[in-house]
């Protein structure tokens, strides 16, 4: 299984060369650190999917001594592993450029990443291969552009929920958010596994 996760790096040797410049770019243009953490986390896992949506890749992986459960597990665990690595690298870069950031930035960035992964990973196995990566990346930037506005709009209009969240104590809010994200991520994982088990190549 570790081999399946390590595969991503071998596959993306060249893409990794642009990983650092991209992060540096976001740091230099002074994007919010949470945003930089999010972009950095997305880089490797979603790049891998650009390969994995191809039928040939699935034929190869499934002909090797791996089970389908393992192949999917490597995706979900790999996403977390690469997210942590990306956070490490990004933190160092931010530190080197003397840009302040907090644990909350990391928490927001990684939460958004995990949620985004949870909602999009199953799509790679439901939709027809070909343009999934494009669709996902475009929807990501759309969400990033109009997402905050939607959240603000909802916060203003669904005052009951807003009040409820605002009234939570900080520890409860954090624990709750962590739990929700974990549950969503696990549900996504199980769903994808079930879908993948039934696929024919």
């Amino acid at each position: 299984m570790f081999n399946l996760i390590r595969r991503d790096v071998i596959l993306q040797k060249r893409q990794l060369l642009i990983f650092l410049p991209v992060i540096l770019f976001f740091i230099i243009i002074d994007k919010h650190p949470a945003w930089t953490f999010l972009i950095a986390s997305i880089f490797i896992p979603f790049n891998t999917y650009a390969y994995d949506e191809k039928v040939e890749t699935n034929i190869l992986l499934n002909s090797l001594p791996y089970t389908r459960t393992e192949i999917i597990a490597s995706r979900y665990l790999g996403a977390i592993v690469y997210m942590l690595l990306a956070i490490g690298v990004t933190s160092l870069a931010l530190f080197a450029f003397n840009k302040p950031f907090t644990m909350i930035d990391i928490a927001i960035g990684s939460s958004l990443f995990l949620l985004f992964a949870a909602f999009t990973f199953p799509l790679f196995y439901i939709l027809k291969p070909g343009h999934i990566t494009m669709v996902v990346m475009i929807s990501f930037f759309l969400l990033a552009a109009i997402g905050p506005a939607i959240v603000l709009f909802l916060a203003e209009h669904l005052t009951a929920i807003t009040d409820f969240i605002v009234n939570l104590s900080v520890p409860v809010l954090y624990t709750g958010a962590t739990l929700v994200i974990m549950v969503v991520y696990v549900i996504s994982w199980v769903t994808t596994t079930v879908i993948y088990q039934r696929k024919a190549f």
């Binding site: 595969r7 071998i10 596959l11 060249r14 040939e56 890749t57 034929i59 002909s63 791996y66």
Partner: peptide, 28 residues
């Protein structure tokens, strides 16, 4: 896994990552 461990497979088309060289494919 035990079964696939004992099989060598060759398919009609190329199923290996096109952009990679043989050394990297072997590493995978």
């Amino acid at each position: 896994k035990a079964i696939k461990e004992r099989i060598g497979f060759v398919y009609d088309g190329n199923i290996f990552f096109e952009g990679l060289n043989l050394k990297d494919i072997k590493r995978i």
